[in-house]
């Protein structure tokens, strides 16, 4: 494993509700933007205008069910990652968001029952390899099924692009 710090992350919580669609994560008017740093400046612009101003590197998004539903734009996970978000923990994810997030190297973790036990500003600690989320503020622990080894390897490389290049180098 390359970078252990990737697999134990901790940060302050930003909460969102159910069915937070990709249009709330990055409004559709920014679709022509392809630069990820630029996209990051508009994360949650319409639903949480203070997010971009106050988010700190490592912060964690905690949301309800079906996070990232709607249009399949990859802009959404990219904006969160480049805004500094280390992980999104949600009751459940829309499929393409989940996939896009892991592929670009953003942690997306489905954890049942977490939303109602977590408040804005709580401190969370996630042990990715062991499958544990700890709410340090409320002293509560949640479990999730750890990622497959392949996903861990891909995350360690920083996403599918770098992983693929490495595999090609190895002639795999």
């Amino acid at each position: 494993m390359k970078d252990c710090s990737l697999f134990i992350v901790s940060g302050k919580v930003w909460t969102f509700g159910d069915n937070c669609d990709t249009g709330q994560i990055v409004p559709g008017r920014y679709i022509p933007v392809t630069d990820s740093h630029e996209l990051a400046k508009h994360a949650f612009e319409d639903v949480a205008p203070n997010f971009v101003k106050e988010v700190q590197k490592g912060d964690i998004v905690v949301a309800g069910t079906n996070f990232g539903c709607g249009s399949s734009r990859e802009h959404a996970p990219k904006a969160l990652k480049f805004a500094g978000v280390s992980a999104v923990v949600a009751e459940s994810f829309a499929r393409i968001f989940y996939r896009n997030a892991l592929n670009i190297g953003l942690l997306a973790i489905p954890v049942f029952g977490i939303r109602k036990e977590t408040k804005q500003g709580d401190l969370l600690e996630i042990d990715v390899t062991r499958g544990i989320v700890k709410n340090c503020t409320r002293n509560k622990t949640f479990k999730f099924v750890p990622y497959d080894q392949f996903i861990i390897d891909m995350l360690a490389e920083g996403g599918i692009t770098k992983y693929t290049l490495k595999m090609l180098e190895k002639n795999d």
């Binding site: 996939r99 392949f150 599918i160 992983y163 090609l168």
Partner: peptide
């Protein structure tokens, strides 16, 4: 099924998918 664009680029490159 549908996939993202970074992922499609990786498939174009290597022909593999998870």
């Amino acid at each position: 099924t549908g996939i993202g664009s970074s992922e499609m680029a990786a498939v174009w490159a290597r022909g593999k998918l998870w």
